[in-house]
């Protein structure tokens, strides 16, 4: 499985004038099993890029391919995790996780069993029969992760998934995500505006420039996991990335 982003551009039309150019000629190749973070200042179009990859928006030019096949719309091959969890509040946790399988027509017994496995993977077996509003933000996002994984997608796309969590929960969730990733070996594309988060999680960091978003630099993070957030190698990369982003910011 290989994910290719091939010279993707996106321009939003305006009622009058030029419109807004959100992305310009973004190209990216992600081999199977890699963990890639897309990092950039707010308004650089990183969420737009992820939505285009997911098939939720169409690019103005260029295309996204999975194993050479162009993405033309949303598909269960590309799982998506949203910042606001987007769980269905009228469904119990287990029914939320089983939702993708339900849509695919999997029988009830089988889909509940598979959902249980994934709930187990995110450590929430005890909450199978709870409703989402009974869970904390971190737990809800774990349910969303289980839901996205349950349909066995080739790529998992995550749009600032921990953005709404407090710092401690966020750190714990990052660790847990790495464990899940190590066990499932999914290809992950993770959008964030946090340099720390990207340095802690990623094999590669794709730094985007401010509007219009272009690929500014791609940084390999070779440090083995689990990483020490305060180690020297991390600090060096962090300093470098922060420098890139700051250069980009218009003087205020």
């Amino acid at each position: 499985m290989k994910l290719e982003v091939d010279r993707v551009s996106k321009r939003y039309p305006a009622d009058h004038g030029e419109g807004v150019e959100a992305l310009r000629e973004i190209s990216l190749e992600v081999p199977e099993g890699e963990f890639v973070c897309i990092l950039g200042p707010s308004g650089c179009g990183k969420t737009t890029l992820l939505r285009i990859i997911a098939g939720l928006e169409a690019p103005t030019a260029g295309e996204v391919r999975v194993d050479g096949v162009p993405v033309t719309g949303p598909t269960p091959r590309l799982g998506m995790i949203f910042q606001d969890y987007s769980l269905y509040p009228w469904r119990r946790v287990i029914e939320n996780v089983a939702f993708g399988l339900e849509l695919a027509g999997t029988g009830k017994a089988e889909r509940l069993e598979r959902a249980r496995e994934y709930l187990d993977l995110v450590g929430l077996s005890a909450f199978a029969d709870a409703f989402p509003y009974e869970l904390s933000g971190g737990m809800r996002q774990r349910v969303a992760v289980a839901r996205a994984l349950a349909t066995d997608p080739a790529v998992v796309l995550m749009d600032e998934p921990f953005g709404a969590l407090d710092a401690q929960t966020r750190n714990a969730m990052q660790l847990e995500l790495l464990e899940i990733w190590a066990r499932t070996r999914k290809t992950v594309l993770f959008v964030t505006h946090s340099v720390d988060e990207a340095v802690f999680l990623a094999d590669r960091i794709v730094v985007l420039s401010a509007r219009p978003g272009t690929v500014r630099e791609v940084i390999e993070v070779c440090d083995p996991r689990p990483r020490d957030r305060t180690c020297e190698a991390c600090a060096t990369i962090r300093r470098h990335v922060l420098g890139l982003i700051n250069e980009d910011r218009p003087a205020d």
């Binding site: 799982g79 998506m80 987007s86 939702f99 849509l103």
Partner: peptide
Amino acid sequence: KRTWVEAAMTLGATERQLLARVILP
């Protein structure tokens, strides 16, 4: 919510499934 609909789409929902299992409930 828009993301309820979009989450279902990325999970493979058809328009009919969207109406019956996300929009109506």
